[in-house]
Design a protein around this nucleic acid. Structure first.
Lengths: 124, 124, 124, 124
DNA sequence: GTGGTCTAGACCACC
DNA sequence: GTGGTCTAGACCACA
């Protein structure tokens, strides 16, 4: 796994799990990998995963069953989407629009970028 | 100024100065506020401003004349725009499009947000 | 049953059984459910019930007749009451009074809560 | 410091700090002891204090100023009281009343205990 | 100096 | 086996 050095690893793990839930790769009720398994898989210390899982539990995305493990909560999709959407609408987008203004970039240009990006992905 | 963000304060100051240059509030050849003045103005430790100015100097946006102070370089506008544009196109936008995909958000919705945002600013 | 609490499940089961004894739902000499039956009933690992029963045995509330099962001991009512009362008077109440002091809550308020609580239960 | 082995140390530290705020020993705007200082004072590992402070920050009771330290937030009293009160009303009290019922203890007896307790404290 | 993060390794209660 | 906590010690960015 490639870690971006600007963001805490445990938060990058959080993002990754949220993305997987949103992408439907993890279904409601699925058991999450055990802390040790996940840690081994992504090559980090188990404590780091404990932190990620703990964070996701406070967000209501994971549920902990004592002595058994963590599970994808029933509201995981919804909570994950809300979490991501809030971050996007309140923190990312305003900054994007402000930057566009400074760069004197029109919304039309942004649309062009979007469609280029989409086409680029399709050909991959 | 709110320093609540997760981003390092010195980088927030960098952004702020670049924004002012792009917005034309600081002209080529203008003398930048002294480190102490700026620090006092934004309520921050002078060392922090030193770091911001240093960063802008390596980017070619500020020029340091020893014993006199920092000045807006001749190429400041151009450099600032290039810096900002590169960051925007290569780091911000791809992530934005990826997030839109995860949130199943159409480019149309983004356009709507943009126009709402613009109108909101105009009425301020 | 909700096992969400911070308390160990086997202790929650202990509390539940003590409560049933105090409430007179389990009579002296009654045979307790087998570990497996109880485990199935409350949806828990049998080992967990084993632990609860073991705890109650050391408290003299259950008796184990090898090969037959667990029974409510003759002194169960008395032992259960003593156990609960001791815990209540020595651990719970002092902490309750200290918290009331911190919250600047009067004994009158507590009385009000009590009566509200009672009325609420009656209407259920 | 005496640690109760039933509760995580970092949570006991949280409780202790909340109690001090409610008791008025820590005033709004006061700087909290640095993580290292506090850790040395109560003889635990700094990481444990980091966890306590982090918890209190998410509760809005402490504020973190980057590179400077933690401070008692403006809303600390209110947040601390709300936190404690919620815990008391929703978790402690219902259990207390249920136990009183099981022990066939009247509200009058509870009042007596309260006044004894108060008198006892006064003579200390 | 401050807090933030990560690792390594240990012990625990619990299922 | 599971997660939860704690320690010890390290390194980092930041003020």
């Amino acid at each position: 796994m490639n870690w971006n050095s600007n963001k805490a690893i445990y938060l990058q793990i959080v993002d990754r799990i949220i993305d997987e839930i949103l992408a439907g790769k993890a279904q409601i009720g699925d058991r999450a990998l055990s802390v040790r398994e996940y840690a081994a898989q992504v090559q980090v210390n188990p404590n780091t995963v404990v932190r990620s899982y703990g964070f996701l539990e406070t967000e209501g995305i994971l549920l902990n069953q004592r002595g058994i493990g963590f599970f994808i909560s029933a509201a995981a999709q919804e909570k994950a989407r809300a979490f991501k959407r809030k971050e996007f609408m309140e923190e990312i987008l305003p900054e994007v629009f402000r930057t566009m203004d400074l760069l004197q970039m029109s919304i039309q240009e942004l649309n062009d970028c979007y469609h280029q990006n989409i086409n680029h992905e399709k050909t991959n």
